[in-house]
């Protein structure tokens, strides 16, 4: 952040990426807006704990993913609909056809949450492995492994080779344990 940019301006600037991450992670357009709203409120409430010129984006992403996994654990108890993503997909993209967009989102939602967030942070958001590992509270090697597995699984899903039906592979999503 520069001296001329307020904390609010910085938050507004981050919203598009936060929405993209939240939507891709949750597969739900409405939920993603709720997650972003909650993230913004938490960030504002605790803005004094953020040091200017440090990595605001990573800080916000960490809050968002922890908020999502809190929600995910609750919703797991209510059994998430397997086709949540497709039903709640937002407006079809200009770059991909509607079908491609839905296929991609559906395939993404069949990854475990840990693998999905790893792939999103590295491949879509462009985080370094080190920063992504910090956001997720895991080791760099674990992050690399997750991305590699996620790519393989996604390729299987997209080519119709996967015979594993349930999203998440029964894995429990992790939460950064040291605060953010």
């Amino acid at each position: 952040m520069t001296a001329t940019k307020s904390f609010g301006d910085a938050l507004i600037e981050a919203i598009p990426n936060l929405r993209a991450f939240a939507h891709s992670l949750s597969g739900d357009a409405q939920l993603s807006n709720d997650l972003v709203q909650e993230t913004l409120l938490k960030a504002w409430t605790h803005k004094d704990s953020f040091v200017p010129d440090s990595n605001l984006k990573a800080w916000l992403f960490t809050i968002l993913r922890n908020t999502y996994f809190t929600h995910y654990r609750k919703s797991q108890r209510e059994e998430l609909d397997e086709d949540h993503a497709a039903m709640n997909a937002s407006v079809p993209p200009a770059q991909l056809t509607h079908l491609e967009f839905e296929d991609m989102q559906r395939a993404l939602m069949r990854l475990s949450p840990d693998h999905r967030e790893a792939l999103l942070l590295i491949t879509a958001e462009g985080f370094s492995y080190e920063d992504a590992a910090r956001v997720c509270g895991c080791a760099v090697g674990t992050m690399k492994s997750r991305v590699n597995r996620a790519r393989s699984k996604l390729l299987e899903e997209m080519s119709g080779q996967s015979d594993e039906g349930a999203p998440g592979e029964g894995e429990e999503p992790s939460k950064s344990s040291s605060g953010l």
């Binding site: 440090s54 800080w59 344990s177």
Partner: peptide, 9 residues
């Protein structure tokens, strides 16, 4: 401190 958390898990 605004820094990212250390990976613990």
């Amino acid at each position: 401190d605004g820094e990212l958390p250390e990976p613990e898990r």
